[in-house]
């Protein structure tokens, strides 16, 4: 009986030790969540419910912001790469939802020095018919123009009050995408994934920064610049370039 008590005591101590903060780090896959946060002028993007000031003096109510991400990849300290996902559609279109889209992946434990993705649908996928994919696949989400124009890589939609009369009666609709626009976004930043106090990875994107960089502002009052659809991508090139250049990675 005395020995049994001793065994029980050791077992208790052993299991208690397993829950200690000094637990050995995990070496297998770590469930890692990446947050995609949308903002407008460095504040949380609120679909429809917020009124946003535009640099030209107009006001906006955002109704849709979305973009495709191809080949989301972590770059390890030894320069090897871990592909997390071939394609994701990040979409904010719900007034009842917050400004955060999350995706969780199993990632090998280790040291990492960066993250990279393609903004848009990579050319190999952009060449395919959406009906090649399952009906609920991100590539069959009805974000497709036709067999020549192909996927819509990103959308920004809003209703604008240009006259400051309280009516948001000018629709703004920027639908962008083409192989020529496909852009690689790369971040550097060191972090370790070991299952113990893993950092939160947050990719932020700012709708206003896609439309205006402080120096140049897209002229939403020009009727020729209120819509970009299908083939008239030249009008949106500056929005696209700013969009691709404004992503940030926060490691918290």
């Amino acid at each position: 009986m005395k020995y049994l008590s001793l065994i029980a005591l050791f077992a208790l101590l052993f299991f208690a030790a397993c829950q200690d903060d000094d637990d050995p780090v995990q070496t297998g896959d770590i469930a890692t969540t990446i947050q995609f946060r949308a903002e407008y002028d460095d504040t949380d993007l609120a679909i429809q419910s917020a009124t946003y000031a535009y640099p030209t003096g107009a006001e906006l109510k955002a109704t849709l912001f979305q973009y495709y991400v191809s080949d989301l990849t972590l770059i390890a300290a030894d320069s090897s790469e871990v592909e997390l996902s071939e394609i994701e559609l990040i979409r904010y279109d719900d007034a009842t939802a917050d400004n955060i889209e999350e995706r969780t992946y199993d990632v090998p434990a280790g040291d990492y020095i960066g993250l990279r993705f393609g903004l848009g649908v990579k050319p190999e996928l952009n060449a395919l018919d959406p009906n090649n994919f399952a009906a609920d696949d991100p590539l069959n989400e009805n974000e497709f123009w036709n067999s020549t124009a192909r996927y819509v890589f990103a959308k920004i939609e809003a209703n604008a009050d240009l006259e400051n009369d309280g009516t948001f009666d000018t629709g703004l609709s920027y639908h962008m995408g083409s192989d020529a626009l496909y852009s690689i976004v790369t971040f550097t930043g060191s972090f370790t994934l070991d299952g113990d106090n893993d950092p939160q990875l947050i990719v932020t994107s700012d709708v206003l920064k896609a439309l205006s960089d402080g120096m140049d502002t897209f002229d939403i009052a020009d009727p020729e610049k209120q819509r970009v659809h299908g083939g008239n991508q030249a009008v949106a090139t500056e929005i696209w370039e700013r969009l691709a250049g404004q992503f940030e990675l926060l490691i918290q």
């Binding site: 429809q48 109704t63 849709l64 809003a158 209703n159 009516t167 948001f168 629709g171 609709s173 819509r227």
Partner: peptide, 11 residues
């Protein structure tokens, strides 16, 4: 017709 949530592609 006008409504502030009218889809931006209706014009």
């Amino acid at each position: 017709h006008y409504a502030e949530n009218r889809n931006a592609n209706i014009f």
